[in-house]
Structure formats: structure tokens, C-alpha cells
Amino acid sequence: MTFGALHVARTGLDAQNFRMQVIANNLANVNTTGFKRDRASFQTLGYQLMTQPGAAASAENRYATGLNLGTGVRLAGTARIDTQGTISTTGSALDLAIDGAGFFQVQLPDGRTGYTRAGNFSRSADGTMVTGDGKPLEPAIQIPDDATNVSIAADGTVSVSIAGQAQATEAGRIELARFTNPAGLLAVGDNMLVETAASGAPQVGPAGQEGRGVLRAGMLEGSNVNVVEELVDMIETQRAYEVNSKMIKAADEMMTNATQTL
């Protein structure tokens, strides 16, 4: 026995459930460096055409209107909202925040290039610049062992001062990648995003050029999650979940009544 309303309300419950998961993930990452919040976007499911408008009702009459019943809702996808997070000063020379568009390029263990906004870099044992969890930056930046001071300019030039030398030497240049559709990048965890067919190819180049943002050394970009906004969304989701479960209850009562009466 199928009853349309029951199944339609179930799709509503499913969708709200997914949305709650997205909100929970946003809230959980409120303090994650460079995290961009996701927004769940819903889409109507297909419609069932029960009666075609204009169909013959009898030999002489035609239906003036039709009966198109919707079959519910589904989660069309999650859109990453790429607004700038708050930039705060940390004082560590290797902390970098991107002010504007663009991503750092990082070599992932499987050989792919990962893209991230999290700029909390440090030096590995062999002197290369690595992310917080040890993935090397691309192109690799080697900081000599005897460097006493490291400074990173807004365009990504890394200069090091070496003990006993008056002039600072250039150790390399950090390049940023930017995408036509950054929302199409796939999140793979550990703050990393990878390129997909939807994101388009990366446009790699020095920071501050061709639309890429500039680097701010000694600063970190926080997440762009707004706790108040998420909490309001959470209440909204909860209420939507409630009305859909009310619907299931109503449909169930109709069926119960029918089975008991007949």
C-alpha cells in the first residue's frame, strides 16, 4: 500500500537531516583555519502528472486545470561559500593568510596537488615549508638551516637572513592557484580541496597578480562560519523537520482510520 503524502514527507525529513549534518559540520569547524562554510541547497523532485490540463473529462467536457503532484524535495548539493574569513595576527613568520582569492598548492601523499586556504605552515626536519600536518608546499620552499630570520612578502617572495651575511637571500617564491569556479573544488578532508571537472584548471601564478589575493605574513585566516547564522539555520531546520514528521503522523492517522472503519 502506498500513500503519496507519506513518502513525500519522508523526502522532507531526509533533506532536513542532511541539512542538519551540513550545519553540524560548519559549527564543528568554527575554529578551523581557512575553513569555508557549506550551504545545503534543495531542489524539488520530479512531478507526477495525474491529470493533464485539457484532457477530456467526458465526451463534451475537458479539465480546465491539471493535477500535478510533486514528489518531494532532495538535497541538490552543498555550495561552499567562499567569503573571506577573519584574518587575525599570530606573530609566527610562517603563518600566511590569503587576502583575496586563491589557494596555496600542497603536494598530497598520493601525488595529486591539494589546494588549501589554511596557511599555518612550519619547517620540516629537512628545512622545507610544510603544512601543519607535514604536507610539502608546492613549489617547494627550502629554508636553509642557518637562517636566522624568514620573511614572506605580499607577492609570495620568501627571503631569509643568514647569520654573518648582511644581505637577505631569496629562498623561493610561493605561488597561488585560482579557479574559475572555486565552489566546484572537491573537499577531501584535512583542509584540502582537489581540482575537479567543475572547478576548471588552476591558474597558477604569483600572489597579487591576475586576481590572486595578496599574502599577509604573520597572520591566519579563520573560518568564515558565523555561529549566529548557523544557529538560526539550525532552528529553521528543526522546525522544518517537525512539520514533516507531523505530516507523516497525519497521513498515518488517515490510514489507521481507514483500516479501522472499513
Binding site: 503524502a5 507519506l6 513525500v8 534543495f42 493535477l67 518531494g72 512539520v243 505530516m247
Partner: peptide, 22 residues
């Protein structure tokens, strides 16, 4: 029953961007 399905569809799409209730 059909009306209930249509109402359920409206409620399920209470959070769909730009949805117009039927």
C-alpha cells in the same frame, strides 16, 4: 489523498530556494 500529497510536497519544500507553493 491527492491534496494531502500536495500539502506534503509544499511542506517538504519549505526550505527550497525560490519555491512557490502549490
Amino acid at each position: 489523498m491527492a491534496r494531502q500529497t500536495a500539502v506534503a510536497n509544499n511542506l517538504a519544500n519549505a526550505q527550497t530556494i525560490g519555491f512557490r507553493s502549490e
